[in-house]
Simulated scan of single mutants.
Amino acid sequence: MKKGGNPYYSGPVSDHFDGVRFFNPGGTAPRGFGDLLRWQLGGRRTRWPGHYASPFRQARPDLNVDGDGLRVTMVGHATLLIQVGGLNILTDPVWSHRASPLTFAGPHRRNAPGILMDDLPPIDIVLVTHNHYDHLDLATLTALNAEHAPRIVTPLGNDTIIRRSVPNAEMSVVDWGDRVEVEDRITIHAEPCHHWSARRSGDRHMALWAAFVIETTAGKIYHVGDTGFHDGINYRAARAKHGPFRLANLPFGSYEPRWFMASQHQNPEEAVMGMIACGAEHVAGHHWGTFRLTNEGIEEPLKALEVALEKAGIERTRFRALRPGEVFDVPASARSAE
């Protein structure tokens, strides 16, 4: 165990690290064990079907996308293939059947991955936003490293977890505000989001969580793996620092009950407010319809998203709720050149 009782990271105190644990400045901590039991024993969970098939076939992506092209293909949950600037980027890759420390229990996939792992193009970069099991899957990272040897970009402390299974991985470990240059073509910035971390009962907040801004010649992309809305503070800060975005990848599922989830998972209405606050021309919506993590029905996020978009006067085509296998060629706009 590292100095100070943190098994993953030791470093200087900052505005979001107290020497042992990370935290959200001015934010709300996740609920404790008593509230977890209250939620889990309280019922009111809408049943999900055992299988929720995607209307799209499993995709077989091109090797790369060059020029002004920007393509996003949904694998499932928060796993997206982003193709831009001749590079292939995976976010929070999970190909395992369960998002769980156990192979026989825990949330299981309701649909197949939208791309077979054998059909992936050469993967250059993997972004891991935080260490929850639906975002950091060691079995998948091990397989990707063996086949593609990508550069993994991840926040402080997560590298320790990953290296236990993938000791030879190439990794760039980042704090909020750090940047990583990739082949003089892409710059990846680590930015705050309002979330938390844990792999087991005793390591809560001991590895950092982050959003990423991907700066490319084809425009800027804002990728958020998980976040509470936090009054839109982080969205506005991202726009103030980076300008508006051609694309934002925003979570909009796994949000009920609000009394328990509001600090960690935004709902569809908040995701639309985040889209506006960060100045995103288009959104790839994720974090819904694959793993049942919370109380809402499997299609409730879609219905709530339609209401939120109509209320905000935003065309539905600008906020795409992606399904596994779906390919989104993001339109270019005047903003993409900013």
Rank of each mutant, 00 (worst) to 15 (best):
R60H: 12
L116E: 05
D92Y: 02
P55C: 12
L116Q: 06
V84D: 10
N88M: 09
I89V: 06
T73D: 07
Y52I: 07
D118Y: 02
L87N: 09
L90C: 08
P107W: 02
G85D: 13
I82W: 01
G114T: 13
S96R: 07
T73V: 13
D118W: 01
V72S: 01
H97R: 15
S100D: 11
D66W: 11
F56D: 06
Q83W: 05
G114M: 07
P93L: 07
F104H: 14
V75L: 11
G86R: 15
D92E: 08
A105E: 10
V65Q: 15
S96T: 08
D66F: 13
R57W: 12
R60C: 13
A112W: 01
I82C: 02
G106Y: 14
D66H: 14
D92I: 01
A59K: 06
D119Q: 13
H108N: 07
T91W: 07
R57H: 13
S96Y: 00
A78P: 13
T79R: 00
P107N: 07
V72Y: 04
G114E: 05
D92F: 00
L63M: 11
P113V: 00
G76D: 03
Q83V: 04
I89W: 08
L90T: 05
M74H: 13
D118C: 06
Y52P: 03
L63W: 06
V72T: 03
S54T: 11
G67S: 15
Q58G: 08
A53T: 05
D66C: 14
G114A: 09
L80H: 08
G69W: 04
I89T: 08
